[in-house]
Amino acid sequence: MTTDERPRDRFAAPGALTPAGSDPIVRLEGLEKYFGSNHVLRGCTLEVYPRETVCLIGRSGSGKSTLLRCTNFLEEPTVGTIEVDGLRVEADPLHQWDREHQERIRQIRLRAQMVFQEFNLFPHMTVLGNLIEGPTRVKGVAEDEAVATAEKYLDKVGLREKRDEYPARLSGGQKQRVAIARALTMEPKVLLFDEPTSALDPTLVGEVLKVMSELAHEGATMIVVTHEMAFAREAADRVYFIEGGTFVEAGPPEQVIEQPQDPRTQQFLSRLLDTV
């Protein structure tokens, strides 16, 4: 397929921090996903520019988490192509367990690190162990170098003193900050956040959003699935509202969140504000 035939994201636009003349660093092209007969994604095309933060919003079951999980192939899309930092991988559900395909997927994952709703820290490793596991085992970084990197990112999330604790000793907010640091130590091209504050006690949400907001303003490339509209308004370059597996509306947060045009977006946002 030549460049011209690719599906394009009509909402795409470089972010405030995107260097002039950059091409998108993440491209999700025409993603379709079925779970059995359930058609969850219906042709999603998303382009994210370097140093841009994009928020995906929508009600539960709308497909926003599935879209994010397809980005690093935790779910194999039924149809579509994913490109991260120049590496293009076409969905191939028939051969998804083939060695070559798995290796391509692994290369995508090294470029696109994910932060999970449930943190998913390794409970049998200390905080430091969690942070150096990927760099040393997967990327082959020397241990002392990996430790230095880990400490740098622990400083960033404000948890240097928890270095030798086990995850069980941390609060939910601390766990999620460690999980963010773990993703950062892999030095990925893009960070994927899958509802990172949804499993947290309300009092702990702030510390996690603060770290994420700092990252966004420092120019990390981020795709964030979230229900936190205040965060989206403050940190996102663009917001996509997804409903029934397609993008209904997208644009800068002041447009999508403050003045939604589509009635479905309006209804979603007013319900969200009612329940908060």
Binding site: L74, R109, F116, N120, F122, G134, V138
Partner: peptide, 17 residues
Amino acid sequence: PRGQLEAAAALGMTDRM
């Protein structure tokens, strides 16, 4: 838990690792 497998996969670990 499944999340442990997903975290390992997301880090880029192979199945064996």
